[in-house]
Simulated scan of single mutants.
Amino acid sequence: MPLVRSILFTVAFYLVTAAIMIVGLPALASRRGVIWIAQTWGRVVLRLLHAIVGLKVEFRGLEHRPAGAVLVAAKHQSALETLALVTVLDDFTYILKRELMWLPLFGWYLARSEMVAIDRSKGSRALALMNEEAAAAMADGRRLIIFPEGTRRAVGAPPAYKFGVAHMYDRLGVPCLPVALNTGVFWGRRSLTYRPGTAVIEFLPVIPPGLPRDAFLAELQRRVETASDALVREAGGSGAVHPAAHARQS
Rank of each mutant, 00 (worst) to 15 (best):
L105V: 00
P2M: 14
A19H: 15
R143F: 15
E149S: 03
A79D: 10
Y109N: 05
Y161V: 07
H246G: 09
L217N: 13
A126W: 12
R171A: 13
V116K: 04
L144Q: 14
W36D: 10
R47H: 05
M115A: 12
R233E: 02
R31S: 12
R143K: 15
A74V: 07
L105N: 01
V174F: 07
L220H: 15
G24W: 02
L192A: 08
I22T: 06
L49P: 09
L204N: 13
G236Q: 10
V53C: 06
A154K: 12
A128L: 12
A79H: 15
P159G: 13
I118L: 01
M1N: 14
V185T: 05
R143C: 15
F186K: 08
S78N: 13
V116L: 10
T87R: 15
D140W: 11
T87C: 10
A139Q: 05
L103H: 00
A38L: 08
E132T: 15
R213F: 01
A240R: 15
A244R: 13
V174W: 11
V224Y: 00
L25M: 05
G150V: 02
A244E: 11
V241P: 11
V88N: 05
A247F: 15
V116D: 08
S124I: 13
T226K: 13
Y194T: 11
A79F: 11
F186T: 08
P196L: 10
S78V: 10
L105E: 00
V185Y: 10
R248T: 12
R143L: 07
S191V: 02
H167L: 07
E81I: 10
S124G: 12
A139Y: 09
V155S: 03
S191W: 14
H50E: 14
E149R: 11
L211D: 03
A230Q: 07
L85G: 04
G197S: 05
L103I: 01
R142N: 05
S228L: 11
A157W: 05
A74S: 06
T10D: 09
A12D: 09
G239D: 10
L80N: 11
L181R: 06
F106I: 00
V241N: 02
G239W: 14
E234S: 09
R120Q: 04
A235M: 03
A240M: 11
W187A: 04
A134I: 04
V11T: 06
R112I: 00
A84K: 09
G150Q: 10
G156S: 09
A218K: 09
A84H: 04
W108D: 00
R248V: 12
I95P: 07
C176M: 10
S124D: 11
T183M: 03
T226L: 07
S238E: 11
I52Q: 00
A29M: 09
D229V: 07
T17P: 10
A180G: 04
